[in-house]
């Protein structure tokens, strides 16, 4: 499987602030990868480097085997969509769609119009009259209809209401299945996009913290439910990532590194072991301090 994006020892800093420190990863062709991480960790900067909008400070960045900054090939075969995506304010949505038809070689105009109709966007309206939510929806429609070999969505659902978000994800998935391409999708709402993703690229602390399938992310941790003293017979306190108290029981999040014997022993003691969602695993991986928000209120 061809590698579309190759990032080797990439460092990015602005004056004294370091965003990335020797970042390393590759993205393969025709996959849907979620780029996740806490606020301000640099997801947008990374995606802009991939799109060729921002250049790396050092290291080697290759998209379609070329350096993306100022590359005509990369620009022609990719599209960067976020909620802003500047368009001339005086043009109508129809005008913009016609420009897209000219620029994007795999553009499906019919699909774009049908999506516009579905989301109640009137093509003759000017860009400047759109509300934030409608603007995000319009940009998202362009992102899907462009069918660019590399499609990058940076928090595309900002401003969209819950119903529109669901429809957008569904539309994206359907078109991705019918017309495979490489998609990068960043979002705060990991729980909302879990089902969509194949792989996950988790950025934390200026580096890649996790890069594997979403299934692997889920299986990194376990939930252990039961009486705390009973559980501590089998595991040590250091293994506990997070604790949640519910009445007489606690729900502990631990790393999935327990032996089968330990697991069996716990089951015998009536301790419940269950898998966790990818979102919870993401939270567990990126927690800064031990414990949770409840501790603030103790």
């Amino acid at each position: 499987m061809m590698t579309i994006i190759e990032c080797k020892n990439v460092t990015k800093s602005y004056r004294s602030k370091t965003i990335f420190n020797e970042l390393n990863f590759t993205i393969k062709e025709n996959s849907l990868t979620g780029i996740i991480g806490r606020n301000g960790v640099g997801k947008t900067t990374l995606m802009k480097m991939i799109a060729g909008f921002v250049q790396e400070s050092s290291g080697s960045f290759e998209v379609f085997s070329e350096r993306p900054f100022n590359s005509l090939k990369v620009s022609s075969n990719s599209i960067f969509v976020d909620d802003l995506m500047p368009f001339p304010q005086s043009m109508t949505m129809n005008d913009i769609l016609n420009e897209c038809r000219r620029f994007y070689f795999r553009w499906d105009h019919d699909l774009a119009l049908r999506l516009m109709n579905y989301f109640s966007l009137h093509p003759q309206l000017k860009i400047r009259v759109l509300s934030k939510g409608k603007r995000s929806t319009f940009n998202a429609i362009i992102g899907i209809s462009s069918r660019s070999p590399l499609t990058i969505f940076d928090e595309p659902t900002t401003g969209m209401d819950a119903v529109v978000r669901k429809d957008f994800y569904r539309a994206l998935l359907k078109d991705y299945i019918a017309h495979p391409r490489t998609i990068l999708l960043s979002s705060h709402h990991v729980e909302e996009i879990e089902h969509l993703l194949e792989d996950v690229l988790l950025i934390d602390n200026h580096k890649v913290l996790f890069h594997d399938s979403i299934t692997a992310l889920q299986e990194t941790f376990l939930h252990i439910t039961g009486k705390e003293q009973l559980i501590l017979k089998h595991i040590s306190r250091e293994d506990i990532i997070a604790t949640k108290e519910t009445g007489p029981y606690v729900i502990l999040t631990v790393k999935n590194q327990l032996t089968d014997d330990t697991l069996e022993a716990m089951r015998k003691d009536n301790i419940r072991i269950s898998p966790i969602s990818a979102n919870e695993a993401y939270v567990a991986l990126t927690q800064r301090t031990k414990g949770g928000i409840d501790d603030v209120f103790k």
Binding site: L32, K174, E198, T215
Partner: peptide, 17 residues
């Protein structure tokens, strides 16, 4: 896996697993 992906609204790779 593609049909399953559409039915369950999930990524085809996950359905494939």
């Amino acid at each position: 896996q593609y049909q399953l992906a559409e039915i369950f609204n999930v990524n085809p790779a996950t359905a494939g697993k």
